[in-house]
Design a protein around this nucleic acid. Structure first.
Lengths: 212, 212
DNA sequence: AACAGGTGTTTTACCGGTAAATTATGTCGC
DNA sequence: GCGACATAATTTACCGGTAAAACACCTGTT
């Protein structure tokens, strides 16, 4: 998903008769091969799908500065692949990612949360939380009680089964993430965390600071 | 979204009567303040939501190595925020992200694609592509023709309106991405692109190389 | 030629998410 | 204490995605 970083077209496949009248087959690798920016870091830049997509855009729009894609495209693509990989073990445990996030929020805060807090905590809508809580309650993973003072609010907590489920899955997820990150050396991991933190801080900055 | 990086609970809110019997309120900032790894890069690490979440996990599970979260959590969170930000201008143009991805794939390859190729190109299911193509065709953004040799396959191409729409939106997206990335200096951007490329290459590596 | 099996696309049934409306409750000013 | 307004949660209607089945067509074998 996300804006622009599908797979490169493998090779025009078996086309058919007349090519589309507009645009003549702009289809060479001419446009500036290799990485656009190779920093101080000597690492030989591999050829990932994003690089191929960026090449395509440059061939079609040589005037456009496509540098941001090299970062944003990769972030999006990494996120998509990571989620896909981590969803498998979740499914095995009978959970969707959204459900795991909800349980995880309860586990890591260590105390009860209201549905509203859970919605904020998991970045989802209140309606979605209501639905998920219904299912998770039926499955005995969470419990709810009403607030005695304010009868609009409910308090949700993990059951023992819920806590055990999260505690069983989390180390597995972390172990997978560790193997993925093992491709980078210690300094690389440190740099990456710092750079992403700077980027994220900017994205999270006081709401609205960065355009809508 | 994604595994573990919601917002930190602002402060137990106004709780109620008895706290849950299990787990005593583990709720101090004690657990190793500050960034877990501060690399060579001197940058003062900011305090983003992921850092807060990682602190929570460390407080509850001091034994667990939460380092991967500092990277994976931030990638996921960045991706979510970026997509949210970039969806707004898309909506204004009457497109969903998935639709824009499809049009973008057609635009950047510069030639016709079959529905199947579009599915691979945009990482979505064939069924989803079928539905999107139906809508986009009705809106006059793409056209389709049957293959003359193999009547199972269709060939999809952008209409002029479709191409103009993509060409109008793309620079806007890139401009936004550039302002977001302006928070990093040139070397930082270069390093980030390279590090993400290494990570992505590993994630994309020969299918199945990395666990499921 | 007929058929078995493969491939490209579409259809079907369903699931989960959201926005907006709804319900129920609390709070503030008078 | 009562009306106006705010807030917490839920319900409703709908939309878009997927998996699996169905369909249409091709290709190789006999």
């Amino acid at each position: 998903m996300t804006a622009n970083h599908g797979r490169p077209a493998p090779g025009a496949a078996h086309d058919d008769t007349a090519a589309t009248p507009e645009d003549p087959p702009v289809r060479d690798e001419a446009a500036a091969r290799g990485p656009s920016q190779d920093a101080a870091r000597g690492a030989s830049v591999q050829d990932d799908t994003v690089a191929a997509v960026v090449r395509q855009w440059r061939a079609v729009h040589p005037d456009l500065d496509t540098a941001p894609m090299e970062i944003i495209g990769r972030i999006n693509r990494c996120a998509a692949l990571l989620q896909q990989a981590e969803d498998a073990p979740l499914r095995r445990a009978g959970l969707s990612r959204a459900e795991f996030d909800l349980l995880g929020a309860l586990r890591r805060t260590g105390h009860e949360l209201t549905p509203g807090e859970l919605a904020r905590e998991t970045f989802s809508s209140g309606a979605a939380v209501t639905k998920r809580l219904k299912q998770l309650t039926e499955r005995g993973l969470v419990e709810r009680r009403g607030d005695t003072r304010d009868r609009r609010v409910a308090h949700v907590r993990l059951t023992d089964a819920g806590r055990e489920l999260v505690d069983g899955i989390l180390p597995e997820q972390l172990a997978y993430e560790r193997t993925v990150l093992a491709g980078l050396d210690g300094a690389g991991r440190g740099d990456l965390a710092v750079l992403l933190c700077e980027l994220l801080s900017r994205l999270e900055g006081r709401p609205g600071a960065l355009r809508i």
